[in-house]
């Protein structure tokens, strides 16, 4: 099974990288771009076939290491 984890800076926390990319896109003529947020994408291969167990384990991985919940949100997909 594979897990795809997305980690992003919380909406109410300043994302300096997102702001820089937003400015760069504007200066390249992509004026339609509004707010930009830059995050992380983590792909995990899991040695399990049990979806319920995988979900609980991935959630624990996010809480413990993959995201810092003081400043970041996370979501994940299993496939």
């Amino acid at each position: 099974m594979k897990a795809k984890v997305y980690v992003t800076i919380k909406q109410n926390v300043l994302d300096p990288q997102g702001s820089a990319v937003e400015g760069a896109l504007h200066s390249l003529g992509f004026e339609e771009v509004g707010k930009v947020r830059v995050g992380k994408f983590v792909e995990l291969e899991l040695q399990t076939a049990d979806r319920g167990e995988a979900e609980a384990r991935v959630k624990a991985m996010c809480e413990k290491l993959l995201a810092n919940t003081v400043i970041e949100d996370y979501r994940y997909e299993l496939e």
Binding site: L14, P16, Q17, N68, V70
Partner: peptide
């Protein structure tokens, strides 16, 4: 801060 011995977190410098 990561170990939660102190509150908060350190973000990328505002001006990068």
């Amino acid at each position: 801060t990561e170990a939660r011995l102190l509150p908060g977190a350190l973000l990328r410098n505002k001006a990068l």
